[in-house]
């Protein structure tokens, strides 16, 4: 069955919640400790990792929100 208009906002909301959980995982210690422990010549990889994860999240949110607003 195809997604009817009533189902769509709920689907967008579910994706958003998944995105929030992903953001929490990306920005919280377990993963950060792993990244921080990576051997680096010079500065730690941590800031680079954060900027990349940050940009990815922004991209995903933009895709989700702008795509959803068309419907």
């Amino acid at each position: 069955m195809s997604i009817t208009p009533q189902h769509r906002p709920r689907r967008v909301q579910e994706r958003l919640v998944a995105l929030i959980i992903l953001a929490l995982l990306l920005f919280c210690p377990p993963l950060l400790l792993v990244i921080d422990a990576l051997p680096a010549a010079g500065l730690s990889w941590l800031p680079l990792y954060i900027f990349i994860a940050w940009a990815t999240l922004i991209g995903l949110t933009a895709w989700l929100m702008e795509d959803g607003s068309k419907h």
Partner: peptide
């Protein structure tokens, strides 16, 4: 240049964050 300066090596790691991982959260 930063990499060649030993005292800056740890400047951007979690260690320099006050309170470490707890402080981060």
């Amino acid at each position: 240049q930063v990499a060649a300066t030993p005292e800056l090596a740890q400047a951007m790691s979690l260690e320099s964050v006050p309170g470490g991982a707890t402080g981060w959260v």
